[in-house]
């Protein structure tokens, strides 16, 4: 059986039975996805109709072996839409791929009616249809994954912006409380924000507090060293504070050389050192009346 003949079998099976297939397909999907509520029924019908229409056109025109050909573009576009909508609704990957895979049962039923007892022809047609739909289904999952990855990337970016505040503790003393894991991208942002703020405020001392950093490995230590060195080149001193006992142990075990960087166990200790270095002090006075 040649490709064109297969095209024809598949095409005429769907073409003649179009209305039946559509109804069965929609029923199938509703059965499998209970939470795709009543309100969305209109949308679902719409999606199925458009898909079927483009799918038919693609089979009639297109090459079944090469799905990269332009005839398939419209079909892919429909799948992209469906995956985008379902991905943003927070449906699972299986629920998204169901859109394509639930099409199999009504399609095969229709093919069986067409074959009319010719087992060999039916097997060939079913195989052809399965290959097609599997590829479309995989594509749907691919798009779905991309959508979700986009969401994750956006959230990461938000986190990055939120998590690097530089605060002024006293005139000329800055603090940078770091929370969360330090990777290269984040360190870059941290470094740039810190250096920019140093320049804007003319601060001579910056305290980098790593109380909220869960682990310090060689990479994180190297990032910290880079930040401290860059600040020193600009003429500001850095103090690293908030080093927990476990982290101190890790740093020594890893053989990380912190050089002559001042380190303190607590932010309070670092603040005291910073005050000493800038010739400031905190004095005890009569407590102010609080109303």
């Amino acid at each position: 059986m040649t490709t064109t003949q297969q095209n024809k079998t598949l095409y005429s099976a769907i073409e003649t039975d179009q209305a039946n297939i559509l109804t069965e397909w929609i029923a199938e999907q509703k059965k499998m996805m209970s939470q795709y509520g009543q309100a969305k029924e209109q949308e679902l019908t719409q999606q199925c109709q458009t898909f079927l229409q483009h799918f038919l056109a693609a089979i009639r025109e297109g090459n079944l072996d090469n799905m990269q050909s332009p005839e398939w573009r419209a079909t892919y576009a429909v799948l992209e839409d469906v995956a985008t909508i379902r991905g943003e609704m927070g449906l699972s990957p299986s629920e998204t791929a169901t859109f394509v895979f639930s099409f199999k049962r009504p399609l095969f039923a229709s093919l069986a009616r067409m074959a009319d007892g010719n087992a060999e022809a039916l097997a060939a047609a079913v195989w052809e249809a399965t290959t097609l739909l599997d590829r479309l289904g995989l594509y749907t999952t691919e798009v779905y994954t991309k959508i979700r990855e986009g969401v994750i990337a956006r959230q990461q970016e938000d986190m990055l912006e939120l998590s690097t505040p530089v605060v002024t503790l006293a005139p000329g003393i800055l603090a940078l409380p770091l929370i969360g894991t330090l990777d290269s991208a984040r360190t870059q942002v941290v470094m740039e924000t810190l250096l920019q703020t140093i320049m804007e405020t003319g601060s001579t001392i910056a305290i980098i507090d790593i109380t909220g950093v869960p682990t310090v490995d060689t990479l994180v230590a190297q990032h910290l060293l880079k930040t401290v060195t860059a600040a020193r080149l600009m003429g500001a001193d850095c103090i690293i504070s908030g080093i927990r006992p476990q982290i101190a142990q890790t740093i020594v075990h890893l053989g990380v050389e912190l050089g002559d960087i001042a380190t303190k166990a607590t932010l309070a200790g670092a603040f005291k050192l910073a005050l000493d270095r800038s010739g400031l002090s905190i004095v005890k006075t009569k407590p102010a009346l609080q109303i």
Partner: peptide, 20 residues
């Protein structure tokens, strides 16, 4: 004494491994 180094310059030097 070197004064007024820009942040971008400081980052570049550190990335080049020139910690001066």
């Amino acid at each position: 004494v070197i004064v007024g180094m820009q942040p971008a310059v400081a980052i570049t030097l550190v990335e080049l491994g020139l910690t001066l």
